[in-house]
């Protein structure tokens, strides 16, 4: 059974300027112990997808369509109280800025003990024991001593580890990680990726890793979904998508990353910029920037599925592996 299945999810924001279709008919699934890399540029809707799963979309935004099946049960339309029982317990989130999770005026111990006791009726000693265990799991040296510290006494990398430890307290079945290493230095990012990989393997945790960095996702994920303008334009196993990308956007994205190329190879660019979410072109949202676009692209492309590879494009590029 899959841990999470999203069917045709749409999340929209309503404002005077119009309706912003932040997430526009997204379907995806994550199996037990599987790591899904959700890749896209800013404004592609990848973070809003994550927030939608957790029921964290605030007005003027709301989920307008679709189902979010977590362990077979639909999360859409649940009350805030029901969602609170799931958030942190069964599904946890890690943010780019660990201070989204951490309270600057409370010690790590207070915050972790509170988190444990929010869902489980255990005594303080037991909660403390679990906190120490979680800090140890994410590679924080001498966790017992660090428990008394406050968030500002940690470096950025250590703070992110603490945030991950808090996410792990209840051994959630699913973790949604929104650009958790983007603000970190390369060597520190590697350390965090190392811990995450170890944890997901040893506990069978499912993970949705939201990132703009194809390189990180390639090294970490089993599956990849590429988002553009609120839609998943291409998805499949990491090897399939990255070795044989067929959607012109995926191809353009891969050729834009200097690290993917040999030295001196020219950088291909995608002309123009992503359309505003309130004013997207009809049909394929990428068509105005696409090298392969023709008239037919003004109509809605259906999803094509070939084995473990799926895409939404009228002109899949077969021989275009970069």
């Amino acid at each position: 059974m899959t841990t999470l299945t999203i069917e045709n999810l749409s999340t929209q924001f309503f404002s005077d300027a119009g309706i912003a279709k932040a997430v526009d008919g997204v379907s995806l699934s994550v199996g037990r112990g599987e790591i899904l890399g959700l890749v896209g540029e800013s404004g592609s809707g990848k973070s809003i997808t994550g927030f939608s799963i957790l029921g964290l979309v605030d007005p003027p935004g709301r989920i307008t369509d679709g189902r979010i099946l977590f362990q077979g049960e639909d999360l859409v339309g649940r009350s805030e109280r029901e969602m609170r029982a799931i958030r942190g317990k069964k599904i946890a989130m890690i943010f780019q800025d660990p201070m989204m999770t951490l309270n600057p005026v409370l010690s790590i111990e207070t915050q972790m003990v509170e988190t444990v006791r929010a869902h489980d009726k255990v005594d303080k000693a037991e909660a403390r024991r679990r906190a120490i265990e979680a800090l140890g799991l994410v590679g924080i040296p001498s966790p017992e001593e660090r428990l008394a510290a406050y968030p500002h006494q940690f470096s950025g990398g250590m703070r992110q580890r603490v945030a991950i430890a808090i996410a792990l307290l209840h051994r959630p079945d699913l973790i949604i990680a929104d650009e958790p290493t983007t603000a970190l230095d390369v060597t520190i990012q590697s350390q965090i990726l190392f811990e995450i990989q170890k944890l997901s393997q040893s506990f069978g945790m499912s993970l949705i890793w939201i990132s703009h960095d194809l390189g990180v996702v390639a090294g970490l994920a089993d599956k990849i979904a590429v988002m553009y303008a609120g839609r998943i334009v291409e998805s499949g196993s990491v090897d399939t998508v990255l070795d044989n990308p067929v959607h012109p956007y995926t191809i353009g994205l891969m050729r834009s990353v200097p690290a993917n190329l040999e030295r001196g190879e020219p950088l291909a660019t995608i002309p123009g910029m992503a359309p505003s979410p309130v004013n997207r072109p009809s049909g394929c949202p990428f068509r105005l920037r696409c090298f392969a676009a023709t008239e037919i692209c003004a109509s809605e492309p259906a999803e094509t599925i070939a084995g473990d590879h799926a895409w939404r494009c009228f002109h899949p590029q077969a021989e275009a592996a970069p």
Binding site: Q189, Q197, D213, A218, G219, D222, V238, N260
Partner: peptide, 12 residues
């Protein structure tokens, strides 16, 4: 440690 798309499911 430089992430590249060439390395898949690497051991960090």
């Amino acid at each position: 440690e430089m992430p590249t798309v060439k390395q898949r499911r690497r051991v960090f």
